[in-house]
Write a protein that binds this DNA or RNA. Structure first.
Length: 299
DNA sequence: AGCTCTTCCTGAAAGC
DNA sequence: TGCTTTCAGGAAGAGC
């Protein structure tokens, strides 16, 4: 599923072909994942793409009226087309003669005859248009960029929280961009069990987590993301980082570090993969324990 | 504050 | 064989 490294890979690909292009026309299929399809279809034609950036897991495509039409009168302020790929979203630039992938729901016709297409099997993605004036507020709702946050800041943010460390890593208002794969891989590298309570971690552990999140994301970007089933970049290519996963979807297989069998359990509502030996479970209060291990096992 | 449950959606895989 | 059920998961919202 597209998380920060996958979205970054898509953005880097789009940056090679979109800036400078003008949107000629917009066509929609299903629109239940689009906030304001009519507005998008109305406002984008005639606007030129000036920038493609990433905010967490969001792709931000900045568009402006071209100089000539702006000079003609009506004030045309920049707008941002914001795209979240959800679970199965894909953005691809294709020639208009290329055949359609199934579940393609948005077509942006460009002035060079090509099309930017949005495909999303499950439609868990999201698309919206933001005027520039609302972009800062949108950005403000998101947590800090995991590749930018400093070690001290990271420690302060986590040490003040009572939540499970896995839940915090996934919380987009704390850190933006980390999803299930990279949360599990980061926790394994930092040797922390996903159910550990953040405020109970010591400084050394928090520093290790900060470092591993950053390292894992950087490595995953280098490998162009992870393709489990549905992720493909803007050129339709698969990622390669899934070949280097140490725990994600490796339940039942031996740990690369110690050979203990990797387990899967639900933590913070998400399937979580960990090595029970490298990542010891937090101490639990001695209560009536029916199943002394993790009582939420699958299989 | 933070946890769990539910909803959205489809296709793969398991169950019968 | 073929139909039915279950499940995965990012994010948001409800309820505790």
């Amino acid at each position: 599923m597209p998380e920060l490294p996958e979205v970054e890979t898509v953005v880097r690909g789009l940056r090679l072909s979109l800036p400078g292009r003008t949107v000629a026309d917009v066509r929609f299929g299903k629109t239940d994942f689009v906030d304001n399809p009519a507005e998008i279809a109305d406002q984008l034609p005639g606007k030129q793409i000036t920038e493609v950036t990433r905010l967490g897991k969001f792709i931000c495509i900045k568009l402006q009226a071209r100089a000539a039409s702006a000079a003609a009168g009506t004030p045309h302020l920049p707008v941002y087309l914001i795209v979240h790929l959800g679970m199965t979203g894909r953005l691809t630039v294709l020639s208009s003669s290329d055949s359609n992938l199934p579940h393609t729901h948005v077509f942006f016709h460009l002035d060079d005859g090509r099309e930017l297409r949005y495909t999303d099997i499950r439609r868990f993605g999201r698309m919206l248009l933001l005027p520039e004036s609302q972009f800062a507020a949108f950005k403000g709702q998101l947590g800090k960029e995991p590749l930018e946050i400093g070690a001290e800041e990271f420690c302060v943010d986590f040490a003040s929280r009572h939540a499970r460390v896995k839940a915090l890593l996934l919380d987009q208002s704390v850190l933006c961009g980390v999803g299930n794969i990279y949360a599990d891989e980061s926790l394994f590298r930092a040797r922390l069990h996903p159910a550990r309570i953040a405020e109970k971690l010591d400084k050394k552990q928090l520093l290790a987590l900060h470092k591993s999140v950053r390292q894992i994301l950087e490595e995953a970007i280098r490998f162009r993301g992870s393709t489990i089933s549905d992720y493909f970049d803007s050129e339709g290519k698969r990622g390669q980082f899934q070949l280097r996963h140490r725990v994600y979807q490796r339940d039942g297989k031996p740990c690369f570090r110690c050979k203990t069998i990797i387990r899967r359990a639900i933590v913070a509502g998400r399937g979580s993969h960990f090595c029970p030996s490298c990542q010891p479970a937090p101490r639990t209060r001695a209560k009536k324990r029916i199943n002394p291990q993790m009582n939420t096992d699958k299989h």
